[in-house]
């Protein structure tokens, strides 16, 4: 089985889906000739031509809106937002249109679009190339939000997103693109949207997180294992709508829960995860629910000192996990 980086897995998923279904096409800024600023669409323009890998004008609402129109017609657009931070001009199209089309038309019309965007910090991207934007969309029924934590998941989930008959926001951690490598089958597998995944079995504490933070938590768990602390790690994979059943099961298993996000704390995805646990697991809990997140400042600063202060990392995870284990 080939070893692949996160971004190679993304490119492979796109290519496989474009080969499988000629209705699948990519649109976005610099996705064509250049192959994307992160090279996620590398080689696809040469293979599939200018209209399957479409360089659009620099206008995010049109990227989303034109994609939505094409999707309503019956195409399978995969729209790329160059950075998640730049998705905001397209929010009206995503929330007022894509999310509500099936509902408002009483199931007559649907929008099978996938919108990919690199999110997250730790890459010297400062305020506007580092943000996590999932919470903006995470109370919009009609949308699905998928945030894979590693290359294997990225490929299987992206293929599932493209085949999904509803709009899917697909957020890829840009630092994970070349940092994370693992075995990725080159066969046609898909992973279920809406299902969380246990990334490590354990008995003392439970960590529930998603995206790059899964990787940090796994690193911390390795270290804590040497001290005899056994960590159970649940990767949400889909952050909206949440897989309640898996969350309740994972929290109840150890009775001590740490929730981690790279986003600002207040109003983030993990607040809803905490509510689910509080509603369902009160008598199984042995410690207050603990949260580790970015500080409540507008976004991540540029200077390395401040960026490091903002970012979640394996050390911060380890410290919080140990504290929880010792409660």
């Amino acid at each position: 089985m080939p070893i692949m980086s996160y971004i190679q897995a993304i490119t492979l998923a796109l290519r496989e889906e474009m080969l499988r279904d000629d209705k699948v096409f990519i649109l976005g800024e610099d996705v064509g000739k250049k192959g994307g600023v992160f090279r996620a669409t590398d080689g696809l323009y040469d293979e599939f031509g200018e209209y399957r890998v479409l360089d659009t004008p620099l206008a995010e609402s049109a990227i989303a809106g034109v994609g939505i129109g094409a999707a309503m017609y019956g195409m399978r657009p995969v729209a790329e937002m160059q950075f998640a931070d730049f998705i905001l001009p397209a929010v009206n199209q995503i929330i007022s249109e894509a999310a509500k089309t099936r509902y408002r038309s009483n199931n007559d019309w649907s929008v099978p679009i996938t919108i990919r965007a690199p999110y997250g910090g730790g890459v010297h991207g400062a305020l506007y190339h580092s943000q996590s934007v999932e919470a903006i969309f995470a109370n919009q029924p009609g949308l699905k939000i998928v945030m894979p934590s590693g290359p294997y998941d990225a490929k299987g989930l992206l293929k599932a997103a493209i085949r999904d008959n509803d709009p899917v926001l697909f957020f890829e951690h840009k630092r994970a693109y070349r940092l994370l490598k693992e075995e990725v089958p080159d066969d046609d597998y898909v992973l279920p949207i809406g299902k969380a995944d246990i990334k490590r079995e354990g008995t003392d504490i439970t960590v529930i997180t998603y995206g790059l933070c899964v990787h940090f938590a796994l690193q911390a768990a390795e270290k804590l294992a040497e001290e005899g602390i056994s960590t159970h790690i649940l990767d949400l994979r889909t952050v909206y709508p949440l897989d309640k059943e898996s969350i309740i099961k994972a929290a109840s298993k150890t009775g001590k829960v740490l929730l981690i996000t790279e986003d600002n704390l207040e109003g983030s995805i993990i607040g809803e995860v905490a509510a689910i646990i509080a509603e369902n697991c009160l008598f199984d809990l042995d410690a207050p629910i603990m949260r580790l997140a970015g500080p409540d400042v507008p976004a991540m600063p540029y200077a390395p000192t401040m960026e490091k202060y903002f970012m979640v990392n394996p050390d911060k995870c380890e410290k919080a996990m140990r504290e929880l284990a010792e409660f």
Binding site: A64, V66, I68, G69, Y73
Partner: peptide
């Protein structure tokens, strides 16, 4: 919002 949609159909 319907203008980009119509453009998508035309695309």
């Amino acid at each position: 919002t319907q203008v980009p949609h119509a453009v998508g159909f035309a695309l």
